[in-house]
Amino acid sequence: MSQLYSHKGNYSAAEPLLYRSLEIRETTLGESHPSVATSLNNLALLYRNQGNYSAAEPLLKRSLEIFETTFGEFHPHVAQILNNLSQIYSDQGNHSAAEPLLYRSLEIRETTLGESHPDVAQSLNNLALLYSNQGNYDAAEPLFLRSLEIRETALKPGKL
């Protein structure tokens, strides 16, 4: 239900539901459980959508710590949180903080999921957007093209 409210932009209805989910998971599963990390990520995304980066960042850092501790530093869940954290920095124009997170996310995804996985395309696209926003179009273009190629291949009829 919280996702429905978030997608509709009804953040005031979504926030208490996300907090409730987080509290339930922390109480029943413990504060270091991967499901808690997922709830932290979801709440952080709500704050990012509101532009409340100071609230989102610590939630993502805690989520990252839980996933790294639980699954190791080279896991797709870690890559997703790195990607989300990089978007917070990118939104604020802090490209020097975002770039290494995007590269780390890309490396994890290429290694664990394969170089033609759609999540790799997401990482490539986000890195390309970062470069494009900086005016570095020569660096952005090959990343956009590789992202597009992966997505076109993954979405071919019969591949789904």
Rank of each mutant, 00 (worst) to 15 (best):
S2C: 09
P118G: 13
Y11L: 10
T38V: 14
A97P: 01
Q92W: 02
G135H: 08
A56Q: 09
Q122R: 11
S32N: 12
N126Q: 11
Y131Q: 00
Y19I: 05
Y137I: 07
N136G: 06
S2Y: 13
R109G: 00
L18K: 02
H95P: 00
N126K: 12
T27P: 02
L113V: 06
E152W: 11
R62F: 07
A79V: 04
R62A: 06
E115Q: 10
Y53L: 13
G51C: 06
S39Y: 05
N52M: 08
L145K: 15
T153C: 00
S147H: 03
H75S: 04
L60R: 03
A140P: 10
G158N: 13
P16I: 06
Y5T: 09
S32H: 00
E31G: 04
E152S: 11
G72F: 10
L4T: 14
P58I: 13
Y137A: 06
L59C: 13
A128I: 05
I108Q: 07
E26V: 00
N52E: 14
R146N: 03
G114I: 01
A97K: 13
F71H: 14
I66W: 04
T70D: 08
S2G: 14
F71M: 07
Y53K: 12
R25K: 15
E65K: 15
K159S: 11
E115H: 06
S147R: 05
A13D: 15
E73Q: 13
S35A: 06
Q134N: 06
E141A: 12
Q3L: 15
S105N: 03
N52K: 15
L45T: 11
L29K: 11
A37P: 04
A14L: 13
L113K: 01
P76W: 10
I66L: 04
E65G: 05
T38H: 01
S132K: 15
G135V: 12
G9M: 11
L145V: 12
L29C: 09
L101Y: 04
L106D: 10
